[in-house]
Amino acid sequence: MNLKQVLKNAKKEGEAVGQFNFSAWVQLRGIFKAAQEQNQPIIIGTSGGESRHVGLKQAVILVEMAREQYGVSAFLNLDHGRDLEWIKQAVDAGYDAVHFDGSELSLKENIEQTREVAEYAHENDVVVEGELGYLTGSSEEHSEKIKIEKENLTSPRQVQQFVEQTDVDSLAIAIGNVHGVYAEMPNLDLERLERIEKETGAFLVLHGGSGIPDEDVQKAIEKGIVKINVNTELRLTWKESLTKALKKDSIKPYEILPEVERAIQEKVNSKINLFHG
């Protein structure tokens, strides 16, 4: 199946497909082992920084290798692309999907640049995700509370115009979700999500899937979310498990890293279970 069909099936079944980001092979192995165990399709994400660290062509090759090794339906997505040329390079390198983040632009500029990405990507059968609304925060652990400004949330009135004029396949929305994990997580505006869902047939995406209470995630899926991105929790799991593993009396990576891999696998397992009910 292609990615559109996977998302369509998730929407029909009232489930969500997880996107899990990586920037190291040990993370990728843990993610794929969880997907294999759960027998569920996944999306592998690389942010701008992650894709530059790994390399676009290298990321494509690594995912292809893992896909073949573990027998998992997996799709590679460029997450939060802002540089049009870098996005086009990702398409040319063999990415299955690209996300253009024009959330810091005016609506007019966002539409124009997202449409440019969609035209280029669709010529190569690549799925395109746009973004409407602005997500606060950064993909890290924060000790403070975060404040959500209402004007940053996705406007249901703009959704139909944005999707029709850009021709995106999926749409990342801001409904109180944030990047990162905070001491007190904000509540999701589920009523806003319902209004957005009524305005478009595009697949709705929830970024900032880390730290949101399970009950809220389940409600968001029930109300139309079909893709959920997880990054910060995987980074925290990687750091915590690596710190613990390094206390072992060993300097051999092959004795240390399996503990990290298992921890990531467990975290992804829990997320896949949540997203697929």
Results as ranks from 00 to 15, higher is better:
residue 227 K to L: 02
residue 113 Q to Y: 06
residue 65 M to Y: 15
residue 69 Q to W: 12
residue 179 H to M: 02
residue 15 E to K: 09
residue 273 N to F: 03
residue 211 G to F: 11
residue 135 L to F: 11
residue 118 A to D: 00
residue 230 V to P: 05
residue 72 V to G: 00
residue 11 K to T: 02
residue 19 Q to M: 02
residue 37 E to M: 06
residue 17 V to G: 02
residue 270 S to N: 08
residue 268 V to H: 07
residue 67 R to G: 04
residue 245 A to Y: 07
residue 267 K to W: 02
residue 190 L to A: 10
residue 98 V to T: 00
residue 104 E to S: 15
residue 196 I to H: 12
residue 12 K to E: 03
residue 157 R to K: 14
residue 85 E to P: 07
residue 187 N to G: 09
residue 88 K to P: 02
residue 154 T to A: 05
residue 40 Q to W: 08
residue 149 E to T: 03
residue 244 K to V: 04
residue 255 E to N: 10
residue 147 K to H: 06
residue 91 V to E: 14
residue 23 S to E: 10
residue 153 L to F: 07
residue 64 E to Y: 11
residue 172 A to F: 07
residue 125 D to R: 15
residue 88 K to T: 03
residue 121 A to L: 11
residue 68 E to T: 02
residue 275 F to T: 12
residue 47 S to Y: 04
residue 226 V to A: 01
residue 248 K to G: 13
residue 245 A to F: 14
residue 269 N to Y: 07
residue 39 N to I: 03
residue 26 V to D: 01
residue 140 E to C: 13
residue 64 E to D: 12
residue 16 A to P: 00
residue 275 F to M: 05
residue 251 I to R: 05
residue 43 I to W: 06
residue 27 Q to C: 05
residue 46 T to N: 15
residue 126 V to G: 14
residue 8 K to N: 10
residue 7 L to N: 10
residue 124 N to H: 15
residue 79 D to N: 01
residue 22 F to T: 00
residue 187 N to R: 12
residue 176 G to R: 13
residue 87 I to K: 04
residue 61 I to N: 01
residue 38 Q to M: 14
residue 215 E to Q: 06
residue 269 N to W: 03
residue 36 Q to I: 02
residue 18 G to W: 08
residue 230 V to A: 12
residue 142 H to L: 15
residue 249 D to N: 10
residue 28 L to I: 08
residue 105 L to M: 13
residue 12 K to R: 11
residue 140 E to A: 12
residue 206 L to A: 05
residue 120 Y to V: 10
residue 91 V to I: 15
residue 153 L to H: 03
residue 178 V to F: 10
residue 204 L to Q: 10
residue 91 V to P: 11
residue 128 V to A: 04
residue 94 G to Y: 10
residue 185 M to F: 15
residue 120 Y to C: 14
residue 206 L to Y: 08
residue 132 L to P: 14
residue 273 N to D: 15
residue 194 E to R: 05
residue 260 V to E: 01
residue 167 D to I: 02
residue 275 F to W: 08
residue 18 G to K: 00
residue 64 E to H: 11
residue 150 K to C: 10
residue 49 G to K: 00
residue 57 K to C: 04
residue 240 E to Y: 04
residue 92 D to A: 07
residue 132 L to V: 09
residue 7 L to Y: 12
residue 72 V to I: 01
residue 111 I to R: 00
residue 65 M to F: 13
residue 198 K to F: 12
residue 129 E to I: 10
residue 117 V to L: 01
residue 196 I to Y: 03
residue 240 E to G: 02
residue 66 A to V: 13
residue 139 S to C: 04
residue 144 E to C: 15
residue 50 E to W: 07
residue 88 K to I: 05
residue 78 L to S: 03
residue 45 G to E: 02
residue 102 G to M: 10
residue 73 S to F: 03
residue 276 H to F: 13
residue 69 Q to S: 14
residue 190 L to P: 06
residue 131 E to P: 01
residue 72 V to Y: 11
residue 27 Q to A: 04
residue 183 A to Q: 09
residue 131 E to Y: 13
residue 135 L to A: 06
residue 199 E to V: 07
residue 114 T to A: 11
residue 51 S to K: 07
residue 42 I to M: 07
residue 21 N to R: 11
residue 220 A to D: 10
residue 130 G to Q: 13
residue 183 A to K: 13
residue 36 Q to V: 00
residue 215 E to C: 04
residue 27 Q to G: 04
residue 3 L to S: 03
residue 144 E to Y: 11
residue 149 E to A: 14
residue 53 H to C: 02
residue 212 I to G: 08
residue 157 R to D: 15
